[in-house]
Amino acid sequence: MEHGNGWARDIYGVFKAHEIAIVSYVPDAGHRELIALCEADDAIRVVPLTTEEEGVALAAGAHLGGRRAALLMQSSGVGNCVNMFSLITACDFPFLTLVTMRGEFGEFNPWQVPMGQAVPATLAAMGLIAQRAADPDEVGEVVDGAARLAFHSSRGVAVLLAQRMIGAKRFTEGR
């Protein structure tokens, strides 16, 4: 069993390597440690949102100004973003989002299941590329590849962080 949340630190390391300057979020327990790491970093502007689509538009504006942004959200937030993803696809903006999944592995809340199950199809429908990370040891590598795809090839890319991986962590930390 890992001490703490190793993969969150790996993602933070990827953010630093790619010079991510703005991290926006609607919180999820699975993103808690990564949000705390970003908040402790003076070189990262952390922007809490009222709804996830704000973070899509924010990332587009940041790119216009020459800085890189990332959006952290839970799977339910993907549905809130749908029309705003037009901005990414229509203008070929680089865009990176990390999505903590609900509604897939051992979900106890039935209301999380419809949007959670619809995430891959929703992203695909709007022209975003989805990549999945399910093993804590591979998260850093997957996010690094997604960041390169987003920022070097100017694509919208979502990393889906598997609920099975996040859920195991929740049990060990007792929330």
């Binding site: 300057a21 899509v56 538009a57 504006g61």
Partner: peptide, 22 residues
């Protein structure tokens, strides 16, 4: 100028991203 042709509701946040970056 960056005029939007869609993304309704997003203008203020595009502006925020640009303002924070510059």
């Amino acid at each position: 100028d960056f005029p939007l042709w869609g993304a309704m509701g997003g203008a203020a946040m595009v502006g925020l991203g640009l303002a924070l970056a510059q």
